[in-house]
């Protein structure tokens, strides 16, 4: 038996919004410590990893591990039926072929229950090693979203170069070129830790997709190391995260 209750549906809506552009379907792995999900996009260029520890939930019960295969389009449709300030309870019986979502209005005067059919999805799990990133940058999530949007105007490829002087995003195409550089700020909005400078090239459209997670967090963490995937991490309060990994482009 699995049961998890969140005081507000809004975060769940935001989490699904952050995933649904990159994934159509995915499996939530629920255990007594919380919920995990990991999936690659269709082209196998990026990977998204979601973690929600049980402490994130108002109520959390999971007697035995259960995997919930979900169609994110269908889940989005159900979440549209709820108000952001509704409480939501997700329930599934052991070996169930459906999941139940119950919404309760803030004043408790309205309840609505929906059932969603579960999918049997082939799960591919990748082992993500602990990586020591040569460059770790924290910046406002809205700033990162703005940079990704502005870069996309110029080119498909974005070069991210990080050194002690700052982090620089560059794109050049037929129209011209764009360079945006951020330096560390004294107030701490932007922090830049650099062991060794790194410069890598990435497909901009994936970066833009990752910024769908912007409403979830004030700050985004970016990790760069030579010849490893880029890390873009959005914390979910103190109880979890969405991490996106993006494979770098290599010279033709």
């Amino acid at each position: 038996m699995f049961e998890a209750r969140l005081a507000s549906t809004l975060t769940l809506k935001r989490i699904v919004d952050a995933l649904r552009e990159i994934l159509n379907q995915s499996t939530l792995d629920c255990s007594d410590t919380g919920i995990q999900m990991q999936a690659m996009d269709n082209s196998h260029v990026s990977l998204v990893s979601l973690c929600l520890r049980k402490e994130y939930f108002e109520k959390y019960k999971c007697n035995r591990n259960i995997s919930l295969g979900l169609d994110l389009k269908s889940l989005t449709k159900v979440l549209k039926c709820a108000n952001g300030d509704d409480a939501v309870t997700i329930k599934a019986a052991d070996k169930a072929d459906k999941v139940e979502l119950s919404f309760e209005s803030a004043g408790k005067e309205r309840t609505a229950d929906y059932e969603l059919r579960l999918l049997n999805l082939d799960q591919e799990h990748l082992a993500i090693p602990e990586t020591e990133y040569n460059c770790v940058v924290h910046m406002p999530a809205t700033e990162f979203a703005r940079i990704c949007r502005d870069m996309a105007t110029f080119s498909e490829s974005v070069v991210i170069a990080c050194s002690k002087e700052g982090i620089k995003f560059s794109a050049s195409g037929e129209m011209g070129a764009a360079n945006i550089k951020l330096s560390e700020t004294t107030k701490g909005e932007v922090s830049i830790q650099v062991d060794e400078p790194v410069a890598l090239s990435f497909a901009g459209r994936y970066l833009s997709t990752f910024t769908r997670a912007t409403p979830l967090a004030e700050k985004v963490k970016i990790g760069l190391a030579p010849d490893v995937p880029l890390l873009v991490e959005y914390p979910i309060e103190d109880y979890g995260y969405i991490r996106y990994y993006l494979a770098p482009k290599v010279d033709d």
Binding site: M40, H44, S46, L47, L126, A203, A247, K249, D251
Partner: peptide, 12 residues
């Protein structure tokens, strides 16, 4: 050229 993410992480 774009590398696949699965060339960096091992399948388990």
């Amino acid at each position: 050229m774009q590398r696949g993410i699965d060339s960096f992480f091992k399948r388990v």
